[in-house]
Simulated assay, not measured.
Amino acid sequence: MRMLKWILCLSVPVLIAVPAYANTTANTTKAAVFPFDFHDAQQDGEIVPQYNPEDLRRLKLVAEELKALMTKDGKYSIIDLAPQAKAIDTASPFHQCNGCEVPIAKDAGADIAVTGYVDKVSDALLSLQIIARDANTGALTKTMSAAINGNTDELWLHGLRYLWRNRFNVEAQPK
């Protein structure tokens, strides 16, 4: 009898937790976060731009940080875009194609397509943009930009986190 009580005590929380987890997963927005684009004004006019490897590393750093923030938030689940690598390579750069990422995101099963773009004017002045589109309609759902005054990991991440807290993750206010 005593063993039966222990089994019941241990199994009840598990039974209660499973439906709650299943419900949370069902309510997440599936997001396709594409590799961020990069423009370095110092390379304008070059036939084959020689981008600074640190800038390209930071580009991946901020894209991965956005994915981590979206996942941690619990409102989003990130879609694996590895199967769409060829289509992504063909369509990019996304900041110049006016929504060409949308069919790729839709084919991947995403609800939204998220792209990012860093415009480097100099090591002292950069701009980070994030754009989200509805994967079914292509409509813009979020556009945002932050100025970054310096070229370090910390400053790029600060700009991204600012956009996350104050623009991306903010629900529309009723009018």
Score class of each variant (00 low, 15 high):
2 R>N: 12
4 L>R: 11
7 I>F: 15
8 L>S: 11
8 L>C: 13
9 C>S: 14
10 L>C: 14
13 P>W: 15
13 P>E: 11
13 P>V: 13
14 V>K: 02
14 V>W: 09
14 V>H: 06
15 L>R: 01
16 I>Y: 11
18 V>W: 15
18 V>N: 02
19 P>K: 12
22 A>Q: 15
25 T>V: 11
26 A>H: 10
28 T>W: 13
32 A>N: 09
32 A>V: 04
34 F>C: 06
35 P>A: 07
36 F>N: 06
39 H>G: 04
41 A>T: 05
45 G>T: 04
47 I>H: 03
48 V>T: 12
49 P>A: 14
54 E>R: 02
54 E>N: 08
56 L>H: 01
57 R>I: 05
57 R>H: 09
58 R>H: 05
58 R>I: 00
60 K>C: 01
61 L>S: 04
61 L>Y: 01
65 E>D: 14
67 K>G: 06
68 A>I: 02
69 L>C: 13
69 L>P: 04
69 L>G: 11
71 T>Y: 11
75 K>F: 08
75 K>E: 12
76 Y>V: 10
76 Y>P: 02
77 S>D: 08
79 I>V: 15
84 Q>N: 10
85 A>C: 03
86 K>P: 00
98 N>K: 11
104 I>D: 10
105 A>C: 02
106 K>L: 14
111 D>G: 04
117 Y>F: 15
119 D>I: 06
121 V>F: 11
123 D>K: 07
125 L>N: 12
126 L>R: 05
128 L>R: 09
129 Q>C: 00
131 I>V: 14
133 R>W: 12
136 N>W: 05
138 G>A: 14
140 L>K: 09
149 N>L: 12
150 G>A: 11
150 G>S: 09
152 T>H: 03
153 D>G: 05
157 L>W: 11
157 L>Y: 04
158 H>E: 09
159 G>C: 04
159 G>L: 09
163 L>W: 05
166 N>V: 00
166 N>Y: 14
168 F>Q: 02
169 N>G: 07
173 Q>V: 14
175 K>P: 03
